[in-house]
């Protein structure tokens, strides 16, 4: 681990002024960043601990929530308002990592966690994300955990977060503050596809700080589910996950949200499927057609082609279960 300075701040202003230093990095729970430092993949020289900032969950008058970036993952998942109004988010968080990691991990850090691609983690391997221009060993190597949607010849890594898949489905917004002022971005626009610059994961600019995540109120609390498929029952990243939410009007789909995890460089909001379903009858045949349409452009690599079939099946199954659910599902 490269030697570094550590500063814990209690004012956002201090964070922002320290955060512009070259070599500075914000520190949440450290469950990802410190691992990367141990592997000498991240080499910050100044850690600005922001866990003392934005640690509250506040509600707006319409029932939406603003979750501070410093709130721990466990605290979000156990918050009564979150569980009642956004059970999808609580489920997704609890499907991730382990209890110990969730107790440490913050919302901001979760959004910014980096890929688990084995070649990114091994500094002897070629990886365009870790050292731009060096090539990608994953595309011809082990790529079971890799992308089937939106990948580029430069990178097929996936974003590993479960929480973000739920946030993508729930139309969350990321609130950002920075040296050049504050701004808001929809979560679905926050993470990027790899293109030819896979070293850039997100739209966050240097020195910018995530301050909170905003969840607008919705009518999905009765019919939503997070289904994570993985290689063991717990403590494994998603091969495919599906966040699904439905609002029905009689037998018709009034409103639907679908997002996929484990399939792309970002939490994948299934806009194509959603558009195909809006206003349609809630039947398995339509769900299947929508899933098919969403994955039309999916491409498998050596080890992950099965995800295409798997993703379609889980989408259909999730929607069938949600539409059959009498009242509160689960």
């Amino acid at each position: 681990m490269t030697p570094f300075l550590y500063e814990k701040v209690s004012e956002r202003g201090d964070a922002l002024s320290l955060g512009t230093h070259p070599g500075a990095a914000y520190l949440g729970g450290g469950t990802n960043l410190v691992d990367l430092m141990r592997e000498a993949i991240a080499r910050p020289t100044l850690l600005v601990d922001v866990t003392g900032l934005s640690c509250k969950i506040e509600e707006d008058e319409k029932g939406g929530l603003r979750i501070g970036a410093g709130v721990k993952n466990t605290a979000v998942a156990t918050d009564r308002r979150v569980r009642a109004r956004f059970p999808l988010l609580a489920q997704a968080i609890l499907a991730g990592a382990s209890a110990q990691i969730r107790n440490m991990a913050t919302v901001g850090g979760n959004v910014l966690q980096r890929t688990r691609c084995a070649y990114f983690y091994d500094d002897e391997a070629h990886c365009n994300k870790r050292s731009p221009g060096s090539g990608c060993d994953a595309i011809g190597g082990f790529n079971r955990n890799h992308a089937i949607l939106g990948a580029s010849p430069a990178c097929a890594a996936t974003h590993p977060s479960d929480m973000c898949v739920a946030l993508a489905a729930l139309d969350a917004t990321v609130s950002i503050d920075g040296p050049r002022g504050s701004r808001d971005l929809p979560l679905t626009d926050f993470h990027r596809l790899p293109g030819d610059a896979p070293e850039i994961d997100t739209e966050l600019r240097s020195g910018e700080l995530i301050t909170s995540i905003v969840l607008p109120s919705n009518g999905f609390s009765k019919r939503s589910s997070y289904r994570k498929v993985r290689d063991r029952s717990s403590y494994a990243f998603a091969l495919v996950s599906v966040a699904a939410a439905l609002e029905l009007d009689g037998g018709r789909i009034k409103n639907v949200r679908l997002a996929l995890g484990g399939v792309a460089h970002k939490p994948w909001r299934a806009h194509v499927a959603e558009a195909a379903l809006a206003g349609r009858p809630a039947t398995e045949a339509f769900f299947a057609e929508a899933a098919e349409a969403e994955l039309r452009d999916a491409k498998g690599l050596r080890d992950n082609t099965f995800k295409i079939k798997l993703a379609k099946r889980v989408i259909v199954d999730s929607l069938v279960k949600l539409s059959n659910a009498k009242d509160a599902p689960r």
Partner: peptide, 21 residues
């Protein structure tokens, strides 16, 4: 990895053994 002879999952996060569940 057959191209390099390198073990690519040298950690308990990636080399899976059963968890309690």
């Amino acid at each position: 990895d057959e191209r390099t002879g390198r073990i690519m999952n040298p950690s308990l996060a990636e080399y899976h053994v059963p968890v309690h569940l």
